[in-house]
Structure formats: C-alpha cells, structure tokens
C-alpha cells in the first residue's frame, strides 16, 4: 500500500490487553483526511477495541493496557502531556446504540460547544447548532422542535443527532462504532449517505459488521481477525481481489 498523502492518524504496532487477555496484537494502520476507513471482522476480533484506543475511551476500563504508538498530526496521543479531554473533542465518536442525552435537541448539540467554550454568544451557539444539524441532514426534520427532547426522535434521527452532536465540537477525526446496527434499512441508508458527505471534511473510521456497508461507504478497508490486522488496503481491492485466504473466506461468508 502506498500512501502519498500524509496520514491524519497513525497507529504503529498497537497492542491492547484486558488483564491477561491480549485483545489487539500489533496493529499498524493510518487514517486519512477525506477518507472513510472501514474496520471489518468477526465479533471479538478487536476492531472496536482498536477504535476506542484512537480517542482513549479505553482509559476508563481499569484493566485495559495499551502499548505501541498512536499519533494525531504526529503527536503521540498517549503522551502524558496530551490532555485527554481535548483529544476527545478532536477525535469525536458515534456509538453503536444512539445515545442522545435526555435533554432537548438543541441542548444535545450545544453541549459540546458549551463545555469547550466554542461559542462566544448565544447567536454563535445558535449558528453552531444549526450548521451541525444541517451537516447531519437533520435540520429540516427538527428545526421546528429544537426544544423537544432528543430521546423522542426515531432511532435513525437519534443517530444523526448524535452525529450532529459530534460534529458540533468541530472534530478532525470521527470514529463510528457500528453506527447503523440498531437502525432499519431506510435509516441506515440516510446515515450512510451522511457519512459519504462528511468524508470530505473529516478522517472517518467506521466499524461495521455489514460487508455491504463497508463496500458502500469506505475507500479503505481493514480486515481484523483474532486481534490481528489480516489485510488492509483500498476497499475495491479487498473486496475484489483479497490477498489473504482468511479475508476471502470472511467476505464470501464462509465464516464469521
């Protein structure tokens, strides 16, 4: 694989341990601006664990230990001088289950900008909320009811609200952990279209169980198996001419 562009995030030889369990075994992977990288593989292969290393969400798990080097713009994110709170603002995350706060739609989106002091005035904040909801393709559906609770939206709308909430803090990277697994096909299509639109501005990594989804939304695909990164490269190459036996078996549905 030849990378001509400079990588936004780079992982080098990353190992993750949960106590004695070696969950991720020496993974090296780059994430690029303007690109969606799909992480695929059977359950328990370490793809979600790896994803959660990229914004240090694993820090909250007491038994979790991360080795290796992960950089964001050439800065080591596990360096003690890095503020994890700011890191998570720069590397946003969307979760498997839509998890809006039990607050109004407006407050959901405004929460990030508020805690990071991104808006100087109420007008600024209104602007951020509007733009975020527009980018998430939700504005037209909710503009008349910004004060109603975010939890009253449908599942697909909730997930797009979560994406709007992540966008609102102006991140550089967005990590998505199976964002469509709890959604119906129509909502999934909307979120996928949104991901496609967002890739111009952010480096995106998406964990998915759906091979079709990986093929539809990603430019790069990485196949994980048993904590190893088996193969990664351009999505078209992985799906049409995989180099590894295991990759071929997985994408043709022979296991997993």
């Amino acid at each position: 694989m030849t990378d001509t562009k400079i990588a936004k995030m780079t992982a080098k030889d990353v190992h993750v341990f949960y106590g004695d369990n070696h969950a991720v075994k020496g993974i090296s992977l780059d994430l690029h601006q303007d690109e969606v990288t799909a992480l695929i593989g059977p359950s328990g292969c370490g793809k979600s664990t790896f994803l959660r290393c990229l914004n240090r969400m694993n820090d909250t798990v007491a038994t979790c230990r991360v080795e290796g080097k992960i950089t964001l713009d050439n800065e080591d994110i596990y360096d003690p001088s890095i503020d994890v709170v700011q890191l998570r603002a720069r590397v946003g995350m969307v979760f498997q289950k839509p998890n809006p706060f039990p607050k109004s739609i407006y407050d959901n989106v405004a929460y990030g900008p508020r805690i990071h002091g991104l808006a100087q005035s109420r007008t600024d904040l209104d602007e951020i909320v509007t733009v975020s909801l527009e980018k998430a393709g939700l504005w037209n559906e909710v503009k008349d009811r910004l004060d109603s609770p975010g939890t009253a939206l449908s599942g697909g709308q909730q997930q797009r609200l979560c994406i709007a909430r992540a966008i609102a803090v102006n991140p550089e990277v967005i990590l998505m952990d199976e964002p469509c697994s709890a959604l119906d096909p129509i909502a999934t299509a909307k979120v996928e279209a949104l991901i496609d639109e967002l890739k111009g501005r952010y480096a995106i990594a998406i964990v998915t169980h759906s091979m079709q989804q990986a093929a539809r939304v990603s430019q790069k695909t990485a196949f994980f198996h048993m904590g190893d990164l088996v193969e990664h490269g351009d999505t078209t190459d992985i799906f049409t001419s995989p180099k590894e036996e295991r990759t071929r078996d997985y994408i043709t549905g022979r296991f997993g």
Binding site: N55, M57, T60, V85, Q86, L87, R88, A89, G92, M93, F95, K97, N99, P100, F101, P102, Y111, G112, I115, H116, C162, R165, A166, V169
Partner: peptide, 18 residues
C-alpha cells in the same frame, strides 16, 4: 444511569466531573 450516557459525554470531551 445507563453507561451509554457516560460514554456519550466522555466522547464529546467532557471531563470526569462534567
């Protein structure tokens, strides 16, 4: 309190106290 709410706030860069 569901852990997903904590994850959501943490993922936005809220400090533990926030």
């Amino acid at each position: 309190v569901p852990p997903s709410i904590r994850d959501a706030a943490r993922g936005l860069g809220a400090s533990p106290m926030q």
